[in-house]
């Protein structure tokens, strides 16, 4: 064993200053991230009818919101069921046919109640929308089933956008990742018979 020479006093002081600076920097940085998160509002930006919302794969332009009675001829529909319908125009803005229209479907909330996942109907066919072709905008109706006890009131609809990464962190391949709220629409639905 060779004898180790203890470092000089100034050297020891310098080492401690460096270590302390690192710890302080980490504390300040994490504190600032918290402050910054609190400064940014959680709510998505407000949107309005006729104003397009970018959902990542598509541009969705809401047009009108109304309540209608479900077609009694549909199988599995209880008589008297009311539906909340949002008509919209939707355009695929990617370079490929998309079969995932919404990674997270729009969410409708009235009062304290969140409605179950909606159906998206292609107006042209009256059937569930399965694909969106690039450069072919389509008119769609987004339908939520309302509970029997529902009374006319304001509805908040939140749209979500999906994140696209040209090079993801794992393989560097292009990929669709998580979603975040991209727009919120406040409206009172018209009651149509």
């Amino acid at each position: 064993m060779s004898e180790t020479v203890p470092p000089s006093l100034t050297r020891r002081i310098w080492m401690r200053i460096f270590a302390a600076t690192g710890v302080i920097a980490a504390v300040v940085a994490s504190y600032w991230i918290k402050v910054d998160n609190a400064r940014q509002p959680e709510e998505p930006p407000a949107t309005a009818f006729g104003q397009p919302v970018d959902t990542g794969r598509a541009l969705l332009t809401p047009r009108a919101l109304f309540v209608l009675s479900a077609d009694p001829g549909d199988p599995g529909v209880e008589p008297g069921t009311k539906l909340l319908a949002l008509t919209a125009r939707i355009e695929n803005i990617t370079s490929q046919t998309q079969s995932v229209i919404f990674a997270s479907p729009p969410m409708a909330a009235t009062g304290d109640l969140e409605l179950a996942e909606p159906e998206v109907i292609l107006d042209r066919d009256g059937e569930v929308l399965q694909q969106l072709q690039p450069r072919l905008p389509e008119d769609v109706t987004i339908l939520w089933t309302l509970p029997g006890t529902w009374e006319a009131q304001q509805v908040e609809i939140t749209f979500f956008a999906q994140i696209f990464k040209l090079r993801d962190n794992l393989y560097g391949q292009s990929n669709w990742l998580g979603t975040y709220p991209a727009g919120s629409l406040l409206a009172t639905p018209e009651i149509s018979s």
Partner: peptide
């Protein structure tokens, strides 16, 4: 493979 470079899948309609 469209003239603009876009890719169209077979229509499910």
């Amino acid at each position: 493979l469209g003239a603009s470079g876009r890719q169209y899948s077979v229509s499910s309609r």
